[in-house]
């Protein structure tokens, strides 16, 4: 705008000609009615309201009742469900277990994905094959992943005990406590290739001249990684951090599917959470059990809302921290706005 006025002022040209000289007018869109914008984004606005906001608010309402999913004579119980939750040892132990799970999985899978990306960003033989090998596990559906890990870690027929047996190490029931948690963590880490792909894309966006001039100036590989690669990748690391954190905190299918089935095999029904080992008893497993094993809908809804608040708090903290360590090359507000 300032360019436009200064042009007009200096040369005394009519506004239209000045606008033409300064290129196509940027604000032509003002001529088009805003309702078209709202019409185009309405699927998301309506969908998000009905399928995200309403269910969450509904759960809040539910959490103040003793509804059991069937009977019509339920009643309001105020904060009783929340009070019960804070005095419930299972709630605390499952929350603690989930925190431990996130504390292990998030940093390890981020560091692993980053390490793989840096390694596989070099000119290596068969680099395409290697990238595919590390990426594949992250797209295998969870039903299959859980089965594969059950087969590998099976006490009697599994690959792990078989190989350990060669060295005379006695068989371990990995899928039971106390090692069940280890299998759960390894299963999550197996998917670190998902982050690797994102980081690889980011690495290819780092200008080669930047790396070259740094090494001409005498920066070693480690310093280049620390002072160029990491800052340039920080938006992607940040994105991946938030994504992994949220998937980790809501993990449910993995522990359910890893639980030993009642008839001893690797398959079997998973509609009840009671077979899940103590080490795998994550927060969402407890919530699932309250709803689908014990029909305590009100209590389960209260647990959901506690998790919601916890995740909200963590996300806000992580987002706030972002301004200290995430580096944006271009101003975010730039562009065509």
């Amino acid at each position: 705008m300032s360019l436009l006025t200064s042009t007009r002022g200096r040369r005394g040209l009519p506004a239209a000609a000045a606008a033409a000289a300064a290129g196509p007018p940027r604000r032509r869109w003002r001529r088009y009615p805003a309702w078209k914008f709202y019409a185009f984004v309405s699927p998301w606005v309506i969908g998000c309201t009905l399928l995200t906001a309403v269910p969450i608010v509904y759960a809040l309402g539910l959490s103040f009742t003793d509804y059991d999913g069937m009977s019509s004579n339920w009643s309001w119980v105020g904060f009783a469900n929340y009070t019960a939750a804070f005095h419930d040892d299972t709630m605390w132990s499952s929350l603690l277990q989930t925190g431990l799970y996130a504390l292990l999985v998030v940093p390890l899978s981020l560091a692993g994905g980053l390490g793989l990306a840096v390694l596989l960003n070099q000119r290596l033989r068969a680099v395409g094959v290697l990238r595919t090998i590390f990426y594949l596990p992250s797209i295998v559906p969870v039903v299959a992943t859980a089965l594969m890990f059950k087969l590998i870690f099976d006490r009697d027929t599994g690959l792990v005990n078989g190989v350990l047996g060669w060295f005379g190490i006695p068989a371990t029931a990995w899928l039971n406590d106390p090692t069940s948690f280890l299998v759960l963590v390894l299963l999550a880490l197996w998917g670190m290739g998902g982050g690797m792909v994102i980081f690889l894309a980011g690495l290819q966006g780092i200008p080669a001249e930047l790396m070259e001039s740094a090494s001409v100036d005498g920066a070693g590989a480690l310093r280049r990684f620390w002072h160029i690669t990491l800052p340039m990748l920080s938006p992607m690391i940040f994105f991946q951090l938030v994504l992994t954190l949220i998937t980790t905190l809501q993990a449910l299918s993995q522990p359910l599917l890893l639980a030993p089935s009642s008839n001893g095999g690797a398959g079997g029904g998973v509609t009840d959470a009671t077979h899940v080992q103590q080490g795998d008893y994550l927060y969402m497993v407890n919530v699932y059990a309250q709803f689908f094993n014990y029909q305590k809908y009100g209590y389960g809804a209260a647990l959901l809302w506690i998790l919601f608040v916890v995740i909200l708090a963590i996300t806000v903290l992580v987002l706030r921290s972002g301004s200290f360590w995430v580096y944006y090359e271009v101003d975010q507000d730039g562009g065509e706005e």
Binding site: T52, I246, Y288, T315
Partner: peptide, 24 residues
């Protein structure tokens, strides 16, 4: 703000909405 709000909703864990949706 709508766009920012939309990106923010990706941080709501899906499982939080799936179970209440089931009840509804």
């Amino acid at each position: 703000s709508l766009f920012t709000l939309m990106l923010a909703t990706t941080m709501v864990p899906q499982i939080l909405t799936v179970i209440p949706t089931y009840v509804m």
